[in-house]
Every structure is written in structure tokens, then in C-alpha cells.
Simulated scan of single mutants.
Amino acid sequence: MTGGKKHKETKGDKTKKELYTTALRLFRKKGYENVSVSEIAREAGTAKGTFYIHFPSKVAVVTEMLHYYDDTYEMTAAHLPADCSPLFAIQRLIEESCSFTCKIIGVDLIRVLYTQQLYKNPGEQEEMDYNRPLYKLFTHFFAEGQKQGLFNQQQQPLAMTIWLIRAIRGVFYEWAMENGNFDLIEETRNFTNVLLLGFQR
């Protein structure tokens, strides 16, 4: 299962990506609160006004992380072996989500993302959008697993997806609360494997 066709990258797309990657680098280096929009624009080699063309605020850069998470999920799914089991596919997606969070995002920005989402109404919370690739991919693989007799038929694929993502999000929350003081990949793997075992026949 792969994502849709990607549109050709424009000059504006490249500028937005440069602003995003520059901001992320500065956030990781100095901390979110210690980085200004002016500094991001300067380091990216563009004007402050250009920043606001692409992002309405500094926190919007953090929300943009969700799109990069989505790209990671779609890329992972596209490179899965054709004959892999649905369970393996789900486990790989979980692992890649953790790896991206540890290596690219970091504890500070996960806190900012969660805080920013909490201030929104449920319908405006991008992280909770069931149309996001991770929801669609998990639902697809749970459905395939049911067809193959791997998962039980007691729950709908979307319901299993929602429970699994809640479990992952809970571990991420604890990781942020504890300032990254445990192995996120290992802890998430151990926790979600118990849940996945409960879904199996």
C-alpha cells in the first residue's frame, strides 16, 4: 500500500522546507523558546516576511512536523517487502515513528506539539485526523490481518487502529514527561506488542 503521487516541488515548496529544516535544527540546538522567527529566517537566508508567507506563527512550524511524520509513514509502507505479514508491517511503522521522533524531533518539540494540540478544539487537532496516513495504514493492515486470520474479528480495523495509536501516543507523552530518560523505541515496542498480542487470534 503506497501513498498518492507527489506534486512537483516548486520554489515556494523548497523555501518552506528550508525554513522548516532550519527551524528544527535551531530548536534542537537551542530549545524552542530560545529561537525567534527572525533568527530562523536569517539562518535560512530569507526575509522574516517570507517566513510568515509559509507559516502564520513559530508554533505552526511544529505542526508542520505532522506532515513529515506522514511522509515517513508512507515511505516506510512503500518499502515494505511485498510478502511481509500485516503484523510485521504494523510493527515497522511503529518503529519508524519512534525513530523519527527520537532522531529528528526530540523531547522539547514533542512537548510543544502536544501542548499546541491541546489548545485546539477536537475537530482542529491535526494529530487526531483519521485521514492521516498512519490511521489509514494501520487500518489497512489490520483489515488484511483479519482476512488472513491473523487478527480476531471482534473489533473493527479502525477501532484497533485508534487503540494502538492511543497507546503509542501515551508512551510518547511519558517519554516527554520524563525528559527522554528511557529508550522510546524499546518501550513503545514492548508496550504495543502486548496490545497487538491481544488483537491476535
Results as ranks from 00 to 15, higher is better:
S38R: 06
S38V: 01
S38C: 02
S38M: 04
E39R: 04
E39K: 03
E39W: 07
I40S: 02
A41W: 01
A41G: 04
A41M: 06
A41S: 11
A41I: 06
A41F: 01
A41D: 03
R42W: 03
R42L: 13
R42G: 07
E43Y: 03
E43P: 00
E43D: 10
E43R: 09
A44C: 11
A44E: 04
G45A: 12
G45S: 08
T46P: 01
T46Q: 04
T46D: 05
T46H: 02
T46A: 09
T46W: 00
T46I: 13
A47M: 05
A47T: 10
A47I: 00
A47E: 12
A47K: 07
K48W: 00
K48G: 07
K48A: 12
G49I: 13
G49W: 08
G49E: 11
F51R: 00
Y52R: 06
Y52F: 15
I53C: 00
I53M: 08
H54E: 10
H54P: 04
F55V: 13
F55I: 11
P56C: 12
P56K: 04
S57C: 09
S57A: 15
S57D: 13
S57Q: 05
S57L: 07
S57P: 05
S57W: 00
K58I: 10
V59R: 02
V59E: 14
V59N: 05
V59L: 04
V59G: 03
A60W: 03
A60L: 07
V61A: 06
V62A: 09
V62G: 06
T63A: 12
T63Q: 09
T63F: 13
T63D: 15
E64D: 13
E64F: 00
E64I: 00
E64N: 09
M65H: 02
M65T: 08
L66F: 03
L66W: 02
H67Q: 09
H67T: 11
Y68E: 11
Y68K: 06
Y68L: 09
Y69P: 01
Y69F: 13
Y69C: 08
Y69W: 05
Y69D: 08
Y69S: 07
D70W: 01
D70Q: 02
D70Y: 02
D70A: 14
D70N: 12
D71E: 15
D71F: 04
D71K: 09
D71W: 01
D71T: 11
T72N: 07
T72M: 12
T72Q: 05
T72V: 13
Y73E: 07
Y73C: 11
Y73I: 14
Y73D: 10
E74N: 10
E74W: 03
E74D: 13
M75Y: 03
M75A: 14
M75C: 05
M75I: 09
T76P: 01
A77Q: 04
A77V: 15
A77W: 01
A78I: 00
A78P: 02
H79M: 14
H79L: 15
H79Y: 11
L80F: 09
L80M: 14
L80V: 12
L80T: 07
L80H: 10
P81K: 06
P81F: 07
P81H: 04
P81M: 10
P81R: 04
A82L: 14
A82S: 15
D83Q: 13
D83R: 09
D83C: 09
C84L: 11
C84W: 08
C84K: 07
C84G: 13
S85H: 07
S85G: 14
